[in-house]
Design a protein around this nucleic acid. Structure first.
Lengths: 223, 223, 223, 223
DNA sequence: GATGAATGAGCCTTCATTCAT
DNA sequence: CATGAATGAAGGCTCATTCAT
């Protein structure tokens, strides 16, 4: 059984998953490898059979989380061709995307960002990896918009601003999730997202097709 | 000179300021009290004369930062009575608010949020304090909008959505800053903010001044 | 094929040889079994099929090195019957005895001595083995001298001091090698050895061939 | 009390002394800081108040041992002006130089050499320090010889070989001590040293003054 | 009030050794 | 036989916190 045997790779994933859970709960610094090991049901030193050190394990967890995340995005894009709907479902996924206690994946991604932006963070010297993921996500959103344009679903005039819109969308979602994590009760996140998309949609939609594609969105506000 | 003498309180602030600087650079876990002490030019154990423990010091630093933050907001509101302009300047402050290396204050606030949302975080059991600050900020933004309405500067119909708009604004700004911290070069934050406000303004303003891609969606608000 | 089959013994030797190489480079403590295993091209746990534990493997490596060492001595003694020449060649072998980077074997022997003389050393409780080897070597040198005497090549009066001379010779060589390992560039070991033997020779040889600084001290031995 | 206060420096020495003792017993790798701490009667982490890490502590112990060593040499040189006697006493010091269990200092110095000559040793990347000490010692011995020459006590012809003789002397002593550490019972070190010096003395002594200064040495052999 | 000094608890990491296959 | 996999024990090091001066 070589080093890439499915059995071995499977265990590595198990560990990364446990790490993901624990890093999410307490962040990078406050999570001990001992905790991760016991959470994975293995001995502490076994981790080192699969990962060089704590940072590598963290990065593995990041990769795993990203993979899962992008897989879900892809599924969403396969389910509908309506760009507005796609954004809606992606937004939904931001706030409700996993089996664990609410906000697990989100907290984890914020932890990753923190480890990226602070000196001495686990990712500070590998920020390009996170940047790469970020760009990939922006491109994904942008492509949804451009596909909408090329199919005549969206206003052609937004094409030149596709990236800006994507970044705005992501910014809003990130900030929204952050607020919801802090104020889990006070804020009605779904309503907020609906509110945001209700105002975003008309900007995206074509004038002449508005009645067909966009009427339902507009109605929301007017009813 | 009692325990709340100005001299004492002054030194406490000095320490909190040094703590603020250090926590900002490396976050809560990675910042040692020794570093803070040397940065403040005092002995390590002197900190304990003023603060119970590391967490209390962190919270003091947060309070100090918030105070400074709200003072700046207040100044902005004193400089202009135009609500859009107010938002613009507040947005500017988000991305360019201090003397330190770029992004210092922002990183700090994200660190605070992380300490609030993760178990075992310094703020996890005191999240109400952060929630209180958050609500205060939302109210501040909301009040700007409502003041604009009551002065006839903004569309009266947005009054009922003032909170939602404030939350959206904050969400966008938070997310935007986060992205800019990760991608300091790739993203043109100012352009993004301008783009956001450019589309936000017509929604807030009265009918006749609205200019967007498609005129159709303005109707939604006005109907 | 029983447990002492040649095949088995052969593999054991392979492992011991790899161990020898690795122990030489980094010493006993700093050499991991993993390193030895990979150097031997086998799995880590295979070592335990051939050796009880790390100490036994070390001892095996020592035995192997000694065997090689004494074989070389024997060859030298077969090449010449002149005792001075024999000493010269043995001295040469001390400083230039292997294929590895310079000083490999020597470092190893010092490592063995260290493991012998420090509490908790791998050989501390088996020092008799090292003592045995030491005595064997002293006897070998002594025998060279005594053979020289009985063949009339050396001054008969040194016979009673043969052991002392042997010990002195070994002491000088050990110390010399040690210094050369520390100061590989600064010291001209070969010149030093030549210098030593130049002064040792007249003491061993008969009166008429002696040439030194002052002829006077030669008389001491001859009187 | 600043960082160079006598109290602080005193404690640092205490720790270094304890370290010296423990490193001597078990070598660098096998000696834990915990052991050193308990030997010094302090907590484990207190060591780090005085030394950066294990290596620095080791080096401090080396410096301390060297200082003590050279002080003793200096005292010896003050007690007699006879160069042969000086060498004799220095030789004596090699084998009997401290209060601890026999061979403590010697074992320690060999440990130092091992840490110098093996890759990954604590001194491997600072070998120049050890080389410096070595050279200093060689020079000390050499100076004794040259002083003897200039005072007319020794044969002027040895002047050009003073370094070679010093190196030879040190080599013999090192090797001798090493053998004695391995074979504490079997070898009569004092007799060996006497034997060595008895043959070294006539080489060093002047021809014409031999009767005056050197007769006693020569007599040893002849009687 | 201020601080140098001390430390225990805890963490990351290594490694000799065991065991099931 | 051979070995991949697993792990407990131990070590170096950090750091928040306490205490005596």
């Amino acid at each position: 059984m070589n080093s890439k045997s499915p059995k071995r790779s499977n265990k590595a994933q198990q560990i990364a998953q446990a790490a993901l859970t624990e890093f999410t709960l307490n962040g990078f610094s406050l999570t001990s490898l001992e905790k991760i090991a016991s959470s994975a049901g293995i001995g502490k030193s076994t981790i080192y059979e699969y990962y060089e050190n704590k940072e590598e394990l963290f990065i593995a967890a990041v990769r795993q989380a990203c993979e899962q995340w992008f897989n879900q995005i892809k599924q969403i894009c396969d389910q509908t061709i309506d760009p507005i709907e796609r954004l809606e479902v992606i937004a939904e996924q931001f706030i409700d995307c996993d089996d664990f206690p609410a906000g697990t994946t989100q907290r984890f991604f914020f932890e990753v960002l923190m480890q990226t932006i602070k000196e001495g963070g686990a990712f500070y010297n590998r920020r390009h990896e996170i940047q790469h993921i970020h760009q990939k996500f922006i491109r994904t959103l942008s492509d949804i918009l451009l596909a909408g344009v090329s199919k005549g679903q969206l206003n052609p005039k937004i094409a030149r601003d596709a990236d800006k819109i994507a970044i705005t969308f992501l910014a809003f979602m990130d900030g929204m999730v952050l607020q919801s994590l802090v104020e889990s009760n006070y804020i009605d996140v779904k309503a907020q997202i609906a509110f945001f998309i209700e105002h975003l949609a008309p900007i995206l939609l074509k004038q002449e097709t508005q009645i067909t594609y966009g009427s339902e969105h507009n109605c929301n506000l007017n009813n």
